[in-house]
Design a protein around this nucleic acid. Structure first.
Lengths: 208, 208, 208, 208
DNA sequence: GATGAATGAGGATTCATTCAT
DNA sequence: AATGAATGAATCCTCATTCAT
């Protein structure tokens, strides 16, 4: 089966995206050399241009490929009819996905620091409904008791920072604390931590 | 007196640091050209080398100059004998400082993403006491009721992300929400938001 | 018959030659990319190498294909036994041919500027008899009254420049004067101009 | 005296222009490598960018430097109050200048073939008065007897081709005839040839 | 202290060409 | 006969750095 084959023999395009994702996440766009991306796949730098129009386009492809599942995930969860523990389930799944794709968070942080224009462009379709429904959901919950409507965007950003920041700071934590934040154990702890924090910051839903 | 003169006419060294801080915060180390830093001060790139040994050294000087007040601030607050509302006061002052130095948060985030080695090197002296005293303080408080000792580092990292993330994401928020996160109004809201969040995440101190 | 088919469906080889001729005439050898030649025929660059050994060989093939009819034309006219108005008829026919193949003149000019080695190589067989007979013809005519034998080569070059230059300068004339030098009207005028110039520069033949 | 010094120690900028002019004239814009231009002055390619913004800008500077004297020359001659033998004197001086700057003609021919946009841009100020006064002068002369007003532009272009073509075709003539068209002797012959041709093509002025 | 000029290293990208399919 | 993919060489250009002035 071709799908089976693909799982083994990744297309060159995918392998380039892998290598690029790794390097962009580690060193950022400006800090990454096209030659190094190619070398990561055992390719000559020129060969890269048979697959992508240029560094910028490759970068955006990496961003898009990394972002899509997250956006779909969140979008999907947000669109459900506010099930009881939607928040925590959303957090869990996003964190799990990020844990399996450790480059993603750093990629997003780098992009946000650089202005986030591409982030907005790529996530455009998703961002709007996510944020609006997110706000709506929050305002329907008892969160109102704790947060004014003006503060709700801040809350969203805070959660984003909480989740992404953990992974983005991973290298620093490793250096400072000497522990590996991507180990299964550490991830379990972070997920439980986030769940607690969510309960503290967001009051339980009406239904409960 | 030379100090009087300096208040008006910043030393070239300081002006270079200003220009460098601005660019490094916006584009990161790799994304910033020495020539552009110099141009920002109306200097030739070569002149820069009369003041700093090289790009790397300049970068570290920027980092050090930006970090020192923050570290001193935190260090100072932490060293007090756990006054009642030390946490909130610390947050307020740090946020205020960051608000007046909007490049700082981005600088730190860029550095953390890049591995944070310089951060650890520069903040080395400070970091250890801060974190250990922070943990100690937390463990003495009723935080224990909510957070296990293993979770306390996560809590510290979480606060760091909450505080720094707000500023680092500023350009993105501007793009996505169309609001200026550095306006006085927005800052007031964020500070009040952080205070609330602190109260929710950290139980009030024993004394209260 | 294959010839019949060819009249409708040009062979790929011919279509490649067409595309190459167009681009080489516009941008010169160095300025033309093999890929663009291929694209002009809806082909992949690699496919070109099924038809020609390389860029250089393709270029020479273009040159040869373009030059042959001209050389044959001139050669034929020159070889006639000095008919009365051979000069003017030769000019007319060459100009007509060039008008129908507007790339040719530019191709030749580019080549001449680049040293003309290929021109000499390709036209070798023809050039010698043409020039020698041309000179002979001139010296037999009353041109002698106006031009010394040493000047006759200059006269030949002058005519070449007059004829080729008109087409080679076409883009410039269009830019400078805003008129299209390849329109039927413009061509008529140029031909009549050349005829007049010929009469002025070359005295009528003896026979007349 | 600084002028004396300059004649000996040409500024690097001038030497770059010299090297570039030489190569551009021989191989055209696309065929010339920046590295080779630099090597012609004993410079590293990077050093070139301390003097010119890029290859294109250097090319235009070469063009401008080469064209200016010619344009001023022609413009000056044209502006005189139609002295008896203005035409011939103009031709002589232009030819002499071109003879001393053998790259110029080729440079212009290359440019014209490539579209002549830069030629029009650079020569813009001059071209208009030159052509309009040229036409005016011709129409006042008895040229009318031989050339219709519509043919006058063709006459101008013809002279341009006659003059420039001689030098542009120099390498080809050398190959084909084995004679050096830039020798003093050859130049004398060409100038005398052009004078004769001028007299034949243009009837003597009214005054005569 | 400042700068114009120089440079080696390296940047992204293009190019002509090859080859397996 | 056509092509996608690969590549070494070469393209223009930028960069951080040095140094004489």
């Amino acid at each position: 089966m071709s799908t089976a084959a693909n799982s083994d023999v990744k297309s060159t395009r995918q392998r380039i995206l892998d290598s690029a994702e790794h390097l962009f996440a580690d060193k950022g766009l400006a800090g990454t050399a096209v030659r190094d991306i190619a070398a990561g796949v055992g390719l000559n730098a020129a060969s890269l241009y048979n697959h992508f129009a240029g560094k910028e386009e490759l970068y955006e492809a990496v961003l898009e490929r990394g972002l899509r599942p997250i956006l779909e995930l969140v979008s999907e969860l947000v669109s459900e009819e506010s099930p009881a523990d939607a928040d925590e389930r959303a957090l869990d799944r996003v964190v799990l996905h990020l844990a399996q794709h450790p480059n993603l968070a750093k990629l997003v942080q780098y992009e946000a620091l650089a202005g986030g224009e591409r982030l907005v462009r790529i996530g455009g379709r998703w961002l709007e409904p996510i944020y609006s429904r997110g706000l709506e959901a929050l305002s329907k919950s008892k969160a109102e008791e704790r947060w004014t409507p003006e503060e709700l965007p801040l809350l969203l950003v805070a959660f984003q920072n909480l989740v992404l920041g953990y992974f983005a700071m991973a290298p620093l934590m490793q250096q400072a604390f000497g522990l590996d934040p991507t180990s299964d154990e550490a991830l379990q702890r972070q997920m439980s931590f986030l769940r607690k924090a969510t309960r503290l910051l967001l009051p339980p839903r009406e239904g409960l």
